[in-house]
């Protein structure tokens, strides 16, 4: 959206394929971008996790066509209940990322397109979904770009608030889900508990104990895997507050070899909700340069992709 399409990007667009991926929740709709044939193949597919799949400002589309020019395949898809995908739409819960969707995609791309090595790129909820994939598919993932996701045990700020609660209480769809879906009822109880816990400030909010146990499980799975990871936040992001605890208390405890696999970048300003196009373009450029660093082939020379 906020970039000027180059002839190379248009060529990648022409090569794209729209796919259906069968999953436990119905068919997921996604777009596969093959790597540009004129560059050395990386042998990896970048899974871009955004909602909707093309991302609010089409960053996922731009990233897909840029990394394809670096020799990486890319795939973006709608989680179930979002965008064009089938499935019931449920309230987002950070501690219940749609791991089943991601696992279905990884396995389908393997069987249908021969993609067996992946780089996962995720933003906020997408990042939490991405890191969850390490539990079931640790050997398939070469890298993780984890952008500005909250990792604390409380629900994300702004969503589970009184105003939204009042709106949901008058929505017939929400009541139907609560009546007919045990899962929806469990999620509602968890959300309510989280709201109460947050308001009572239980468990402390400045210690490792305040981090989400689900995130901790996924983080341990990442540690056990051999993947590299980039953790990118803005200093002014609300989401950074919980990550600061991990930065202070978790990462220093890692052994040297593991710690070396992980990069942490905290930029001035915002990453989670960029306030201007320039910051968004910086995020795209950094994402591409980091993915490029995972390429097993010879380094490219010349201007970096993503710079206008």
């Amino acid at each position: 959206m906020n970039w000027r399409e180059t002839p190379s990007e248009l060529a990648r667009a022409w090569a794209e394929k729209a796919l259906k991926v069968p999953s436990p929740h119905g068919d997921l709709i996604g777009i596969y971008t093959p790597p540009a044939p004129e560059v050395a193949p990386a042998g990896m597919c970048v899974l871009l996790l955004a909602r909707p799949r093309f991302e609010y400002r089409r960053m996922a589309v731009h990233l897909a066509r840029l990394v394809a020019q670096e020799g990486f395949a890319a795939f973006r898809f709608d989680f179930h209940g979002w965008g064009d995908s089938e499935g019931e739409t449920q309230l987002t819960m950070l501690d219940e990322p749609a791991t089943e969707d991601l696992t279905a995609v990884i396995r389908h791309l393997g069987s249908a397109l021969g993609e067996h090595r992946f780089v996962l790129w995720g933003w906020c909820y997408g990042a939490r979904a991405a890191i969850s994939a390490f539990v079931d598919e640790p050997d398939a993932i070469a890298g993780l770009a984890f952008l500005s996701a909250p990792i604390d045990a409380a629900p994300a700020s702004g969503v589970y608030n009184v105003r939204n609660l009042a709106r949901w209480l008058t929505d017939g769809t929400q009541w139907r889900q609560l009546i007919f879906s045990g899962r929806a009822r469990r999620r509602a109880v968890d959300a309510l508990r989280g709201m109460i816990r947050k308001s009572m400030n239980r468990g402390g909010n400045s210690s490792e104990a305040s981090l989400s146990p689900v995130f901790m499980e996924h983080f341990r799975a990442l540690i056990r895997a051999r993947a590299r990871a980039l953790f990118l936040y803005g200093a002014e992001d609300d989401e950074y507050a919980s990550f600061r605890i991990a930065e202070r208390d978790l990462f220093p405890k890692l052994d040297v070899a593991t710690r070396r696999r992980f990069e942490i970048e905290v930029w001035p300003g915002r990453v989670h909700s960029p306030l201007d196009v320039a910051r968004q373009q910086e995020i795209v450029a950094r994402s591409v340069s980091w993915v490029r660093s995972l390429h097993p082939g010879p380094l490219r020379h010349g201007a970096a992709v993503g710079e206008n």
């Binding site: 909602r51 209940g81 739409t89 449920q90 906020c124 994300a156 969503v159 939204n164």
Partner: peptide, 11 residues
């Protein structure tokens, strides 16, 4: 404004 919790819809 994209709703974080779920996509906008109307039964």
């Amino acid at each position: 404004f994209l709703m974080w919790g779920q996509p906008w819809s109307s039964t």
